[in-house]
Amino acid sequence: MMTRPTVLVTRRWPAAVEAVLSERYDTVLNTCDVPLSPAEIRRALKTFDAVLPTVTDRLDAEALDVPDARTRILANFGYGYAHICEPAARQRGLTVTNTPDNPSECTADFAMMLLLMAGRRACEGERNLRAGNWSRWCPDHLIGTRVSGKTLGIIGFGNAGQELARRAYHGFGMRIVVQDEERIDPAILEQVDATQAKDVDDLLPLCDFVSLHCAEARSNEPLIGARRLNLMKADAFLINTARGDLVDEAALVHALIFETIGGAALDVFVREPRINADLLNCDNLVLLPHLGGATRENREAMGFRVLENLSDFFDGRDPRDRVI
C-alpha cells in the first residue's frame, strides 16, 4: 500500500474540513491553535510533504531557510500570500497556492455593514447604551449620516469590490466611483452605473464613503496616508476590510481626532492582533477583529478549496490556484 502524503495544518480549521483532510492524508492538526514560530515552521518543512498555513504564519526567508526541506507545497488558507516570502519559496522549489474567490460575497456583506455602522454611529450608540448613559430619546442624539443616495468610492474593483458595488447600488441607490490599476470592462461598470476614476487622488474628493478592496499597496508607502486623507471630504468615511498596511494608522488617528474626515471603520490592522492604542481612543471609529470572511459557509469553502489544490498537486496536476 502506498504511503499517504503527510500534511500539517498550522491553525484550527472548520471541523468538516479537518475531517476530510484526516481521511485523505496523514494529517497533524495544531490543536492548540497558536501560530508557529520560525523554528517550528523549519521543523515542519523537514517533516511534512505539505504545510497548510494561514495569514498568521510568517513564512519569511528565515522560516523557509531549509535546504533539505521535505515539503513540496504550501497550500495557503486565504486569498493573500504576502506572509510567504516569494523569492525564498521559489529558491526552495515550493509550490504555493491560495484560495482566491471564496471570501468575496462575505467580505462585501461585511464592508456594507461597516459602512452603515460608521455612517449611523452604531458602535457609539451601543457603547452609550451599555454604559447606562442613555437617559431619553432626543432629536439631536448621535446624529449620523444618511447612506442611501450617497457616493461610494471603491478602490480595487475585483470580486469583492464588484460585490460591494452591487449591494450599494441596488440596495441603497448609491452612486459608484471605482479605481483600479487595470481598465475595467465597461460592461461591468454599466451593471452598477459606475464610473472609473483615473487614480486614487481623483476618486477621494468625490466620495462620501471610500472602501478599500485592493490586494496591497504598489509601493512601500501606505495607500492611504496623511496627504490622501486630506483629499477626502470633511464628512467622508473610510472603510478597510482589505489589508491593514494599506492605511497609515497614525495619520488616520490624526484625521479622526481633528475631525478632518467624518469617521472610519477597520477590520484589519498593521500589526494585528496588536492594535495601535491610539485607535482605541477614537470614538468615530468602528473596530472589529478581522471578521470579514468569518462565516461558516465561507471558512468551509476556503478549506475545501485547499483540498482541491492538494488533490491536484499530489495527483500530478498543476493546482488551479497556484500563485508561485
Rank of each mutant, 00 (worst) to 15 (best):
P205A: 04
E126R: 10
H213G: 09
W137M: 12
A197N: 03
D193L: 06
A160M: 09
G171W: 10
Q196F: 12
D199F: 08
E126L: 06
G149W: 08
I154Q: 02
E190K: 07
K150Q: 05
C207E: 00
K150P: 00
G149Y: 11
H141A: 14
D180G: 10
H170T: 12
P205N: 06
I188S: 08
A165F: 04
G161F: 07
I154N: 00
A194K: 00
L203V: 01
L203P: 02
G132A: 02
N133D: 11
P205D: 04
F209D: 01
P186Q: 11
L164T: 05
R167V: 04
E163R: 09
N159Q: 13
A215N: 13
E190I: 07
S148L: 12
D208P: 03
Y169M: 12
R183H: 14
D201P: 08
G173N: 15
R146N: 13
C138G: 13
E216C: 14
Q179N: 08
G132I: 03
A165E: 03
W134Q: 06
R166F: 07
D185L: 12
I143P: 03
G144V: 07
V200G: 00
A165T: 01
R166G: 04
P139E: 12
V200D: 04
L204N: 04
V178Q: 01
Q191V: 03
L212T: 05
I184W: 09
R175P: 06
G132D: 06
V192A: 03
H141V: 13
P205W: 04
R175H: 04
D202T: 09
G149P: 14
L129T: 14
L203C: 01
L204Q: 01
A197L: 06
I155M: 03
A131V: 06
G158Y: 05
S211E: 02
A187D: 08
G153K: 00
S148G: 14
G153V: 00
E181G: 15
D201C: 10
I143C: 06
V192K: 01
E163G: 03
N128A: 14
A131F: 09
G171R: 09
G144M: 04
V178K: 02
L189K: 09
R175N: 07
C138Y: 14
H141Q: 15
M174V: 07
N128K: 13
C138R: 15
